[in-house]
């Protein structure tokens, strides 16, 4: 059951909330950022040596780890010749005073499903390449998103971490016996997972009639609503989610879409180059 939240993620002092709202109308944000400006971010790939691909991302003060693991599993009956993809998210209690231990709540589930959808239909990962024994054994790509510190815009921080992790994911080496048995060679790799499409999300907050990109926690606490747009490297839209209590006008939706497509293209390039640079330095 979904219930109107009675205790927000963060309570902004009224004076600050009013200042924030009146400044935003003039196009100024408390942080000094422009309305269409992301916070600075850093990416550290290979952060989790035991994962087959991983990235630690700081977007402002929001911290997220994405870990990718490949395991041998069985395909779904309707797609016998494709690997499978599972995306989960945990809002770890380290991240915020309001996060409690326990199974993922609706916000964590929503985040994981938004990231999942952004990758799935556009076939960002070519699952047909992940077949070991057709119809019987395939790779399962587990993407686990770990939110460590919450300073707003968890979705985009997660999308950055997932993109960087996937760009560095390797496929483990396996030995297939004549009987069809599969042994995974621990720590040995066959090659790169590779991405057919690079995808990112851009979250846009609405406050009054102003749209702003990458809201931080203070801003999120006073926003009317948010819209998350998944953008691919060929300029298409691969997912949308209006998230939050309020609503947007038709004109605002179209404006948000233009903004997301522009910022998304830039962000994909920034994440890719930061990732590739580290890969080169590492090898």
């Amino acid at each position: 059951m979904s219930v109107t939240p009675s205790s927000p993620d963060y309570i902004l002092p009224k004076l600050k909330a009013e200042t924030l709202a009146s400044l935003v109308k003039k196009g100024v944000r408390l942080s000094g950022r422009a309305l269409d400006e992301f916070r600075d971010f850093s990416v550290k790939v290979g952060y989790i040596p035991n994962a087959d691909g991983s990235a630690f991302v700081k977007l402002g003060n929001t911290q997220v780890v994405a870990g990718v693991k490949l395991e041998v599993g069985t395909p779904y009956p309707d797609t016998p010749n494709e690997g499978t993809l599972v995306v989960s998210a945990e809002f770890v209690p380290t991240a915020s005073p309001v996060f409690e231990p326990g199974p993922p709540d609706e916000n964590a589930i929503e985040l994981a499903r938004v990231i999942d959808r952004s990758l799935r239909e556009i076939r960002a990962i070519d699952l047909s390449k992940l077949v070991l024994v057709p119809g019987k054994k395939v790779w399962v790509v587990w993407i686990d998103i770990y939110v460590l510190d919450h300073d707003g815009n968890l979705v985009d921080a997660s999308a950055i971490a997932v993109l960087a992790a996937l760009l560095t994911t390797k496929i483990p080496k396996v030995v297939v016996s004549p009987e069809g048995g599969i042994t995974v060679k621990k720590g040995e790799y066959e090659g790169e997972l590779g991405l057919s499409r690079r995808v990112i999300t851009v979250t846009i907050g609405k406050l009054g009639d102003v749209l702003l990109v990458d809201p931080d926690l203070e801003e999120e606490s006073v926003l009317d609503t948010k819209i998350v747009v998944a953008v691919s490297d060929d300029g298409r839209i691969s997912g949308i989610q209006k998230s939050g209590m309020g609503a947007l006008t038709y004109e605002e939706v179209l404006k948000a879409m233009d903004l997301a497509l522009r910022k998304g293209g830039e962000l994909i390039e920034l994440v890719s180059s930061a990732t590739l640079k580290q890969l080169k330095e590492g090898s």
Binding site: R117, R120, E121, I122, I227, S232, G235, R236, I237, S238, G239, I240, Q241, K242, L248, V253
Partner: peptide
């Protein structure tokens, strides 16, 4: 507003 799939 949600989208599952790909649109230009």
């Amino acid at each position: 507003l949600q989208l599952n799939g790909v649109l230009t």
